[in-house]
């Protein structure tokens, strides 16, 4: 009984610890003072206005959004055929190919970022949108792959074969049968991919410049010298966006992953 109570206390304290910084940042973004105050001293949305009036923030928002959208789109286009190949065919080197595609999940992003800068300098691509894009595709593709692969089951295969037996060609079958079956995986994997690209600092920082900047990198460079409510306002926007995406994911596929599965 005492152990149970202790676990409850530690768990609730841990939850508070997880929520505290996010609440504090969102709160300070509403302060009327020109320094960070929590609880906020008066309520105002003026710091969000300051952001909208600053072209460098607006352009960083545009870059980040375009980058995340493009990286997600390219990674879906690459991950879907890759997962079909991995699910359908037994071939020599299959395990190797699978670990190649999944390895960016565990790679230190600093190392990959440095590699892309060095490689980009060699082929004249360094510090460009393309250099950022290829790096982001590499790190987000595993998310799509991991969400699509489990959906390519034998049952799914049977429907696909039925379609082919009825005379549909592979292309028609893919768009009319396979794609609707794996759409859920593409959407949830795509959302994870979008977010991972949107929040990345370590990889992007090597290939950004003063004029080509993403939101997280801009924030990183800014926070090291100045701390003011505008940075809290940018942060608040990203926190609210993250919360919305997760609630969306929860509604789409149900995030109740920690309920017990073997209770008799």
């Amino acid at each position: 009984m005492i152990a149970r109570l202790l676990i409850r206390i530690v768990a609730l304290a841990a939850l508070a610890y997880l929520v505290l910084p996010l609440v504090v940042i969102t709160g300070t973004s509403l302060t009327q003072t020109s320094y960070l105050a929590f609880p906020p001293d008066g309520l105002t949305l003026k710091w969000f206005g300051v952001l909208l009036d600053d072209p460098s923030y607006v352009s960083a928002f545009v870059t980040s959004t375009l980058l995340a959208l493009a990286a997600t789109a390219v990674s879906v286009v690459l991950a879907v055929p890759a997962s079909l190949a991995l699910a359908r065919y037994a071939f020599a080197g299959r395990a190797l190919v699978s670990s190649l595609f999944l390895s960016p999940l565990v790679l230190p992003y600093v190392v990959l970022g440095a590699a892309l800068l060095q490689f980009g300098s060699a082929i004249g691509m360094a510090r460009s949108f393309e250099a950022l894009l290829v790096g982001h595709v590499v790190i987000v593709m595993p998310f799509v792959l991991r969400s699509v692969l489990p959906l390519l089951t034998p049952e799914q295969r049977a429907l696909e074969e039925a379609s082919m037996d009825l005379g549909a060609n592979p292309v028609t079958t893919f768009f009319l049968v396979v794609l609707p079956q794996i759409r859920g995986g593409i959407v949830s994997g795509g959302l994870l991919a979008f977010i991972s690209s949107w929040i990345n600092v370590e990889l992007s920082i090597f290939n950004t410049t003063a004029t080509l900047n993403t939101i997280p990198v801009k924030m990183f460079n800014y926070v090291q010298y100045t701390i003011d409510p505008t940075i809290a306002a940018v942060s608040a926007i990203t926190i609210v966006a993250a919360a919305l995406v997760i609630i969306l994911l929860d509604l789409l596929m149900g995030l109740d992953m920690l309920s017990e599965r073997h209770r008799s």
């Binding site: 997880l18 910084p21 300070t28 929040i199 600092v201 924030m219 990203t238 926190i239 993250a242």
Partner: peptide
């Protein structure tokens, strides 16, 4: 579960900034 995952979906920079404050 959502409270555990929201921080994962927020940039390191935002979370570290929270602790700087």
């Amino acid at each position: 579960v959502i409270l555990v995952i929201v921080p994962l979906f927020t940039s390191n920079i935002v979370r570290s900034f929270g602790w700087m404050v």
